[in-house]
Nucleic acid binder design. Structure first.
Length: 810
DNA sequence: CTAGGGTTAG
């Protein structure tokens, strides 16, 4: 029994207070929706209820609830039988549903002589509420009522119910409701199809389509569009083509919804050309058509084309919506076009999307990606409705900035900023999700911040995101980049699904540490598992071969890649090959290989070659390479350092001064040599010759002690190049013993537990002397020492370095 | 029918 009282007819803005003692909140709410819908034309209303839990703990206590009719709510379309104004409602008949464990007092008698339309319109507002709130139990109540009053004969009401059940995720009930319909029209069939597509059962949607044809119903353009959606979901181009044929046969490919669906089908299947062709055939293109076509470009690496379409769209006076704008902004990100991006920003304002959350999230990310931290920060600070996506965009944006900045120094700033944001996010009470975790882990890996990474690892386990394959991939990558292949491979084995990227990440991890055999074995396992490698996988494979000097294998894989997998070699593949010849001291072969490349060799390749020439004494070849490198007009200090080095080694002093001149013109500054080590959650930084760090004297003492011991084992200090941007007068060479990485490592030795590896990140290349010295230190202390310099990761264990001593050095 | 934020590269 529902002991409520209803006194007067409610008006907009009115509040009704009542008590109840025995009913669930939903039943109560529903009853009031009934009352509201009948008492007035103000059907949409909100019911403020005490929380379910408080009701559960006091089941017998009287609970007060407030029914509020929303003052601004527009009038509903007139229904056929609202009570006349001023007429009060009395509740007369009680009825107990047999299949619902619920007392239900039937609202005012349904008019017996009422026609079907009358009853239909009675249910519509209720159904709308159910749909909006997605409330399964309410829907069941209404459904029961519908059956009881015989309205289940009504196709429209029943389709509505199918729709609601589908939205609640209950396709069994949706199907049952559908099956119980005595008559079915195309809308009913289509509704069921939509349900299956939305509940990730696209195959059933196709079945329903076929049944519909068998039953003699003709599909509408909309049902064809849904069928195409199902194909899109299945990524089944074959099936999609069949539908396309059907569509052409009935000459409906110019229809807007069909064309839109075709466009997204082809886009999701990676066929940009076909997608755009479908788009062009649409007679009346709406915003969605344009947006579909534009995002098709975005999804298929056609950002420039997408932006072109956007310009075309705007010039045809079609107003973009938030979907268009977000897609366009993300394409600006893709090509890192701040220019275009700012223009789109202006348009966002013009079209009234200035305060749209999604649009602002995209803008924020764009600004970060283009390096405009200030703009992004301003947008971020001005948002009082920042969502988790906003935070994620900020964190991911800083992670992106790390990627794009050339030097480790500014990368570290972005990285710390990202980690900072992450802890702020946690403090704000929002729960990080898989997007957050994968970004943060990638930041940890770039910072070689194992301790932070481990903490995040723990959090991913606690929150259950560990099992997400992308998070898992980031985690494995983090362990690899922090020097722990053991833990990476352990996590790799624990992953239940292994995607191509996951395999690639682990292969690359092994290659990174010079574990070539393991890398190649894993690659074979991957192929046996039937996972198709991509371009990047082969970068890892070739890197592994290069590391171990396996020329034949490398050439073999290089060919397999092109012949069997139809992957065109890119710069990174060539770099690996050149690196291999350089490591083996086969400089002539390296040079020949470069000549045969069908790409213009990059700065990286020439630098690598020159470094090899210096090591192996191919000075003439090195000078030739130097000319090529100079013609690429390098901008960074390290490249110039290398050039000076080769010319000095070759004794070509006139070239040395020429390079120095160029450095002056290009305003290439002195190398900012800088190392950092993170201990617990603090980052300590060291400059060469630094005196202003904690424990200065202790570190100096310890360092000198190490030096003396190393010399006993045979270490000899080697002076390396000093790069100075000024005249010779300023040349006061800093003692090589106080190079920043030596300081950072010694500091780590003093402050980390004995068993803990030392992890240091450096802003420039290491010099050869430091590399040598650290090898001795790893023997002397029995520690694992990992140094990430501006080009490579070096892992020193017992006097050996994972780079095989063939890196580039200053 | 469209959808903002995530993982692998020498």
């Amino acid at each position: 029994m529902l002991p409520f009282m209803v006194g007067a007819i409610l008006k907009r803005g009115d509040e009704l207070n009542f008590c109840c003692s025995c009913l669930s909140g939903e039943a109560l709410a529903l009853s009031f929706i009934f009352i509201a819908s009948r008492s007035h034309s103000l059907c949409p209303c909100s019911l403020v209820l005490p929380s379910v839990s408080s009701m559960a703990s006091f089941p017998l206590a009287a609970v007060t609830a407030t029914l509020k009719l929303h003052p601004q709510f527009p009038k509903c379309p007139p229904t056929s039988y609202p009570p006349a104004k001023g007429q009060s409602i009395s509740l007369q008949k009680s009825h107990r549903f047999t299949h619902l464990d619920l007392d239900f007092r039937e609202p005012l008698l349904l008019s017996k002589e009422g026609t079907e339309e009358v009853e239909q319109s009675f249910y519509v507002p209720l159904l709308q509420q159910c749909l909006e709130k997605c409330c399964y139990s309410d829907t069941q109540v209404v459904h029961g009522h519908v059956v009881k009053t015989g309205t289940h004969e009504d196709v429209f009401v029943m389709s509505f119910l199918v729709n609601i059940y589908a939205k609640c995720g209950n396709m069994d009930d949706a199907k049952r409701a559908f099956d119980n319909m005595p008559r079915k029209n195309v809308v009913a069939w289509t509704t069921l199809m939509v349900g299956y597509v939305q509940n990730s059962q696209p195959k059933y949607a196709i079945h329903v389509f076929q049944e519909m044809l068998h039953s003699g119903s003709y599909p509408s353009v909309y049902s064809l569009a849904i069928a195409l959606n199902a194909c899109t979901y299945l990524q089944c181009l074959k099936l999609g083509d069949q539908f396309h044929a059907y569509i052409i046969k009935y000459n409906v490919d110019f229809d807007t919804s069909v064309g839109n669906a075709l466009c997204s089908l082809y886009s999701k299947c990676g066929r940009l050309e076909l997608a755009l062709r479908a788009f062009r055939r649409i007679k009346e293109k709406n915003v969605i058509s344009w947006t579909s076509a534009i995002s098709a470009c975005g999804d298929n690496a056609g950002a420039v084309k997408g932006l072109g379409l956007f310009v075309e769209m705007v010039s045809e006076d079609t107003k973009p919506n938030e979907f268009t704008l977000t897609s366009v902004l993300s394409q600006c990100c893709e090509i890192v076009s701040l220019d275009f991006g700012t223009q789109v920003h202006v348009m966002c304002i013009k079209f009234g999307y200035k305060s749209n959350l999604r649009v602002r999230n995209s803008l924020l990310y764009l600004y970060l990606k283009c390096g405009c931290v200030g703009e992004a920060q301003m947008l971020f600070d001005g948002m009082d409705d920042a969502s988790l996506v906003t935070w994620n965009a900020m964190i991911a944006g800083h992670a992106q900035m790390m990627e794009l900045t050339k030097d480790n120094l500014s990368a570290c700033h972005s990285g710390s900023e990202a980690l900072n944001l992450f802890s702020m996010l946690s403090r704000s009470g929002m729960k990080p999700d898989l997007f957050t975790f994968s970004s943060v882990l990638s930041v940890c890996s770039r910072m070689v911040a194992l301790e932070q990474g481990e903490q995040v690892h723990a959090q991913t386990i606690k929150t259950g995101f560990f099992s997400d394959v992308v998070v898992g991939t980031s985690l494995i990558n983090m362990y690899n980049k922090c020097g722990s292949t053991e833990r990476a491979s352990k996590a790799f084995l624990e992953m239940s699904t292994r995607t191509m990227i996951l395999w690639t990440s682990m292969i690359t991890g092994f290659a990174l540490h010079g574990m070539s055999q393991q890398a190649l074995h894993l690659f074979e396992d991957m192929r046996l598992a039937g996972v198709r490698p991509n371009q990047i996988t082969f970068v890892g494979v070739l890197a592994a071969c290069s590391h171990a000097g396996m020329v034949n294998e490398a050439l073999n894989y290089f060919e397999i890649m092109q012949k069997k997998y139809k992957i065109k070699p890119v710069m990174d593949h060539y770099s690996c090959m050149v690196d291999m010849y350089v490591r083996l001291g086969q400089l002539e072969e390296a040079f020949n290989f470069i000549k045969k490349m069908n790409l213009e060799p990059s700065e990286f390749i020439w630098s690598n070659l020159i470094a090899g020439c210096i090591i192996h004494g191919y000075l003439e070849l090195g000078c030739n390479a130097a000319e090529k490198l100079l013609s690429l007009e390098p901008k960074d200090t390290e490249t110039y350092a290398l050039l000076l080095n080769i010319y000095l080694s070759a004794g070509r002093l006139e070239d040395v001064s020429r390079v120095r001149e160029m450095m002056k013109e290009e305003k290439v500054g002195k190398l900012k040599d800088w190392s950092w080590i993170s201990i617990k959650d603090k980052v300590y930084s060291f400059e060469t010759n630094d005196k202003a760090y904690p424990q200065n004297s202790l570190v100096c003492e310890s360092l000198e002690d190490l030096l003396a011991k190393a010399e006993k084992l045979g270490y000899r200090m080697v002076e390396s190049m000093e790069i100075s941007d000024e005249e010779e007068e300023e040349k006061t060479p800093s003692p090589i013993i106080y190079h920043s990485e030596k300081l950072a490592i010694t500091f780590g030795l003093e402050n980390l537990p004995c068993s803990s590896p030392i992890r240091v990140v450096k802003s420039t290349l290491m010099c050869r002397d430091c590399h040598d010295f650290i090898k001795y230190v790893s023997t002397l202390t029995g520690r694992e020492i990992i140094v990430k310099d501006s080009k490579r990761l070096h892992k020193f264990v017992e006097g050996q370095c994972s780079c095989g001593d063939f890196g580039s050095f200053l």
